[in-house]
Design a protein around this nucleic acid. Structure first.
Length: 467
RNA sequence: GUCCCCAUCGUCUAGCCGGCCCAGGACAACGGCCUUUCACGCCGUCAACGGCGGUUCAAAUCCGCCUGGGGACGCCA
């Protein structure tokens, strides 16, 4: 088998969204699996909507996901000579022709076709006029010249299987726009051929472009790559993913404190499987992803499952690594802590957090000024009774007098206080929790207090104990 | 409207060259265990082959139709 070359070709008109990310992931994995190349190409021929900031954002998201690319980044706007040469060749061989119809005229044709119940299309009226270049003119493909006998365009899709379309369904599409820029289908074919792409994997919104592109390969006399059209990713309501479904862009997940490993794992399972296995390391993915076991039906994105993946990877991440990852989130909350001080806190909360943002929230609850602790209404009403406050005042003095402030000492002190005063633990535990963090959940009390430190604990007990 | 694609638990999916499947795994939900709280973890329960016809001794698996969903039809990509 020749070297496998795949490519991801986003257009810089927005951030990298999860659909594109999954396509990129599949392309990357296939290339890595076969020891081939994964190329990246920026499709910026739409001068109106393409923005450098989006290119930068897409690249940043790719790096964050761990999808590195081979060779130079290609920009279509810098490759116009290539497209022009191909269009000219088509013109010379009669496989393409100049068309002087205005957009309005073409739109009228489409309307007429629609009215007849036909597929809206260009009627080919300039095909035999032998027009030359003129301002406002475009170049169109001469389908009849490429496929004189009509017939069908057939191809075997890696994920969809056998697909066939009548040549009659295709019209003389524009290859070069009046501004001299190539159209999408033209540029894609020229680029994929020039870059030696062997496997074109993309979203299945492109299946209907494929016969058109195959026509171009034929017109140019080039070998076809293998096509693979992966189904779309839908929202939880099975509708097309849109803003109202929440985060779509990879950067948003990054901001929400998701781990790239979790997003990768979640995305790869949307449309691909390896038996019953759910969790994969990158190495395993590379080993198993060979282009088979791709699912041909659309999948709904499940935020809950992403959350589960994230919690899993978060719990697996070594504490030191986690500290490094959570630090920016902690800083963003305006907290002033050193990484060193964060270590025991992260260790304490790692298992109960689902995202880095959760973890930062937990840090904030421990580190904020005493007066900023927010008491959960229900918990406070139940725990901060007159009796509860009295316990807190007594506890304050017990803890203040302790020789050490480590978990063992605190555990003993707390238990002997409870036992020595003929109390039940639930008379002391709940008020203590509310005093410390404002709510009723969290780590084991002695561990929590040891990590928070005596000063903070006493200050919080003092505040909550005030009548 | 025309063309193309798709169809297993609420969701992601395994199975789909027919019998091993009165359909397996995971998320969610629910119940329990663990626990001085909350999580984590562990155990368990609920839950699906869209409909109708064929082919066959036998169909989730093959074929047809229907229904439903999606996509495309641009001088966007």
């Amino acid at each position: 088998m020749n070297k496998v070359i795949t490519r991801f070709a986003p257009s810089p008109t927005g951030h990298l969204h999860i659909g594109g990310a999954r396509t990129a992931l599949f392309c990357w994995l296939l290339a890595r699996h076969y020891g081939g190349e994964f190329r990246l190409r920026i499709e910026d021929t739409d001068l109106e909507r393409s923005k450098q900031e989006y290119t930068d954002s897409i690249l940043a998201s790719m790096r964050w996901l761990g999808l590195d690319w081979d060779g130079e980044l290609a920009y279509q706007t810098q490759r116009t000579a290539l497209y022009n040469a191909a269009v000219d060749r088509l013109l010379e061989t009669g496989k393409a022709y100049w068309c002087s119809c205005t957009p309005e005229e073409v739109e009228a044709m489409r309307e007429a076709a629609r009215a007849r119940g036909d597929k809206p299309r260009y009627d080919g009226r300039c095909r035999d006029k032998h027009l030359g270049p003129a301002p406002g003119s475009v170049v169109r493909l001469n389908v009849a010249a490429v496929m004189p006998d009509g017939g069908r365009i057939v191809f075997d899709d890696m994920v969809k299987g056998h697909i066939a379309v009548d040549v009659d369904e295709l019209d003389d599409m524009i290859l070069r726009r009046s501004d001299g820029m190539p159209t999408y289908n033209m540029a894609v074919v020229v680029d994929d051929h020039d870059m030696g792409v062997t496997h074109v994997i993309r979203g299945d919104d492109h299946v209907s472009n494929t016969p058109k592109q195959i026509l171009l390969y034929k017109a140019l006399g080039w070998d076809l790559p293998v096509f693979g059209h992966v189904p779309m990713i839908l929202g939880p309501d099975r509708q097309k993913l849109s803003k109202r479904h929440g985060a779509r862009a990879v950067v948003e997940y990054q901001k929400d404190g998701l781990l790239p490993a979790a997003l990768v794992n979640c995305l790869v399972r949307l449309g691909w499987s390896h038996g019953d296995q759910e969790l994969f390391t990158m190495d395993e993915l590379i080993e198993f992803f060979d282009g088979t076991n791709l699912n041909s039906s659309a999948a709904a994105f499940d935020f809950e499952k992403l959350n589960w993946f994230n919690a899993h990877y978060l719990h697996e991440t070594p504490v030191e690594e986690l500290v490094r990852l959570v630090e920016p989130f902690v800083v963003r909350k305006g907290l002033d802590v050193t990484a060193e001080a964060l270590v025991p806190m992260v260790a304490l909360y790692r298992e109960r957090a689902n995202t880095l943002l959760d973890l930062a929230d937990d840090m904030a609850r421990m580190l904020c000024p005493t007066e900023a602790v927010v008491y959960d209404e229900k918990a406070a009403a139940k725990a901060l009774t007159d009796e509860g406050r009295a316990q807190l005042r007594a506890l304050h003095d017990v803890f203040a007098a302790l020789p050490d402030f480590d978990p063992a000492t605190l555990d003993t002190a707390l238990n002997s206080y409870v036992a020595g005063n003929g109390l039940k633990f639930k008379q002391v535990g709940p008020p203590l929790r509310v005093a410390l963090l404002g709510n009723q959940s969290g780590p084991h009390l002695p561990d929590l207090m040891a990590v928070m430190g005596r000063e903070r604990v006493l200050s919080r007990l003092e505040r909550a104990g005030r009548a």
